[in-house]
């Protein structure tokens, strides 16, 4: 078991390891994750001098990336957050509203329409790639960030499915009591259903956050100006522009892109596992 875990940890560990190397050692063969430092006159790995040199090298690499003239990572970071926040809000709200309609209301044809929702999960992204692009072109939205988060405001089939399953488990009595107290559907939704569904809503929000964070194709197609780039696209451009030469900086940039996801994962692992277990994250 630990062998498997170690194997799975290798790429991330090496991403971090290369990111704190001096440039000359980033493209050097070797299986030792730690570089020899200071360069030329290596100190033993257990010495204080070694670790302070390592810290110096790390901060040099990371500030080199953050302040790089070739890529404006602080701006990419902000852009990604902006798209992320907007699409998470939209996805969670819209999906919750739609899921309410699919679970707490009884109306003829409801289950038929819900099957349609599930069927849309089967449509390959490739079919939608070009026509969606042309659609946004017709709307005049190419080169803006709207195509990246606007669709989320209409909910997503998978999130609706997830929330509907959760809403179904909420006992009807609670709702009926609220109705007797004079609550409208909207009031019931806001005051009873949403507060009770926090875990499920969190799952949906997290899944959407990660999906937006990881999205590469959308920014690639819709963004034309460097000042709009998201982290994924910025990293790809940074990497391809450098042609892989300063690997230490490219890896430091990768760590910057991965770190927020790691933090989220540590803070909310339970919810991720819940969401992905249901089949949600795609690569």
């Amino acid at each position: 078991m630990w062998i498997a875990a170690t194997l799975y940890a290798i790429p991330l560990v090496w991403m971090a390891a290369v990111s704190i190397r001096p440039a000359a050692q980033a493209a050097a063969a070797g299986v030792n994750p730690l570089p020899s430092l200071p360069e030329g006159d290596p100190a033993p790995k257990w010495s204080v001098a070694y670790w302070s040199a390592l810290a110096g090298q790390s901060s040099e690499n990371y500030s080199g990336v953050w302040n790089s003239p070739a890529a404006d990572f602080p701006t990419y970071f902000r852009n990604t957050l902006m798209v992320g926040v907007l699409s998470v809000l939209g996805m969670t709200l819209a999906s919750a509203v739609a899921a309410y309609g699919f679970s707490r209301l009884r109306w003829p044809g409801r289950d038929g329409v819900f099957v349609l929702v599930l069927l849309t999960l089967m449509i390959p992204q490739a079919v939608l790639m070009s026509p969606q692009y042309l659609l946004f072109k017709k709307m005049g939205l190419i080169g803006t960030m709207l195509p990246l988060w606007l669709p989320a405001w209409f909910g997503g089939a998978f999130s609706i499915f997830l929330l509907r399953q959760f809403f179904m488990t909420i006992p009807r009595e609670l709702e009926e009591a609220a109705r007797i107290d004079g609550c409208s559907h909207w009031g019931t939704f806001l005051r009873i259903i949403l507060p009770l569904s926090r875990p499920a809503l969190l799952v949906v929000a997290l899944m959407q956050a990660v999906a937006t964070w990881n999205d590469f194709l959308g920014p690639l197609l819709y963004l034309n100006r460097e000042e709009q780039y998201t982290l994924s696209l910025g990293l790809q451009m940074f990497q391809s522009q450098h042609g892989g030469t300063p690997w230490n900086l490219v890896m430091a940039a990768s760590v910057i892109v991965v770190a927020p996801v790691l933090v989220l994962y540590v803070a909310a692992r339970r919810f991720f596992v819940g969401g992905v277990g249901a089949g949600g994250v795609k690569e």
């Binding site: 003239p69 902000r78 957050l81 992320g84 926040v85 907007l86 969190l202 460097e226 933090v263």
Partner: peptide
């Protein structure tokens, strides 16, 4: 922690920042 993360992200997302290129 989650709440703080979300709040932080929300604030930073709309923090005015002039892109370096501009």
């Amino acid at each position: 922690a989650l709440g703080a993360l979300a709040a932080g992200a929300g604030v930073m997302a709309f923090w005015p920042r002039i892109p370096r290129s501009r």
